[in-house]
Write a protein that binds this DNA or RNA. Sequence first.
DNA 1: CATATATTTTAGTACGTCCTAACTTTTATG
DNA 2: CATAAAAGTTAGGACGTACTAAAATATATG
Lengths: 231, 231
Amino acid sequence: MATRRVSEPSHGALTGQAEDYLKVIYEKAQGGEPAATTAIATALGVAPASVSGMLQRLARLGLVRVERYRGARLAPAGRTVALQLIRRHRIIESYLVTRLGFAWDDVHAEAERLEHAASAELVERMAAALGHPTEDPHGAPIPTAEGKVDERRLQSIADLPVGATARVVRMSDRDSEFLRYLATLGVRPGATVKVAARAPFDGPITLTVRAKRHQVGVAAAARVFVEAKTR
Amino acid sequence: MATRRVSEPSHGALTGQAEDYLKVIYEKAQGGEPAATTAIATALGVAPASVSGMLQRLARLGLVRVERYRGARLAPAGRTVALQLIRRHRIIESYLVTRLGFAWDDVHAEAERLEHAASAELVERMAAALGHPTEDPHGAPIPTAEGKVDERRLQSIADLPVGATARVVRMSDRDSEFLRYLATLGVRPGATVKVAARAPFDGPITLTVRAKRHQVGVAAAARVFVEAKTR
DNA sequence: CATATATTTTAGTACGTCCTAACTTTTATG
DNA sequence: CATAAAAGTTAGGACGTACTAAAATATATG
């Protein structure tokens, strides 16, 4: 008989930790390649050996498929769990920003904890209170309750050629310092940016945002996703 | 080095389980007597042996004082944790009812999970959004952030003599079926009840609520707390 | 292509939490 | 007050999750 943890979330028998692994695997395994052990370990702040162990457990539960020495992919059941978790996360972030006055660069950690504790009912009530938003405050699409989500792969600013103009769609929400930096540049979802210049050898990129020029590193540029403006 | 659980709450190094034990001990040890092992076990739905083990751990952490074969009391540090948890719980319940349309008889379980995941900041933002309420939807007083709370012991309806009139102050929030039953009788915080009759040998109590008479069992009456009306 | 480096897995251990079974202590009662 | 019943503790084990160290495999490079 599976151990029942008294204060575990209401949705499903999975522990919060297992849910986190699934979410990371979802994110890391987006492009054909399975999610690498070390990548998962880094994302979760655990040792690679811990990942190997958990992957076996998740595989036993039918949530992931593991290729030894190669990495893990989500099985359909695991994908469902991951998308539900992402839905929770993004709705909670939206609610905290819109209704409780949290700063958009400061909600990630809070949502990261609440997503494991919130019932489906709570999340749906939050979504309803916000008018069923389709994107979170960082521009990331919110999966539907049925698990559909826009998975189209966007270009990052680092992919743009010199002279290109693009609309900012979204950015990674992980690092609040990074988000605060972007805010000082005026880079937020919906903003228009233009690549004015690129230094050679992956040197800094000069961006024009709201008529101001800024130099940003490639690493930062690669974490801001855009849609090219056709015109 | 103490193990750090990745998805543990932001407030303190305690696990959610340990927090729950402290809360139960707080509740059970209100009147002079220490909280009995079995009482704690029943409240948490675990075996008495598990309680013995956890009490040793909590005592090692300086959170409770245990008298062997007798029970446990909170140490000052444990009391602080318990009161913060109760504050979280009651503010969350209030928020869910007032801002997200939860039924008052249905919020307990949700709050029970969220109280371990919510940061102090979130809880204080909720409290501020509600205008810093002093009671939760079931009439229970909300401890202050500094850990002060009204601990005066109230009479229950079962304590009232025939003919007494009283104002309902609060009731146990544990059991939503019980709360729905009370609602059908019109028994809510603030309501006025009169003990019209009492059958002998702990028989049913006849109450008058909003001009209607109801028979309730002693067990139910003992879970509704009142203030005698002096007049 | 052989070997060095990086990645991944296994083995062994720890800790928090839970359980059941057996033992001990307290309490209640004839 | 002796003994039975109730309450509590200890012993031993399981599971989820983590760690380190050592072994195995994959990749990269001279």
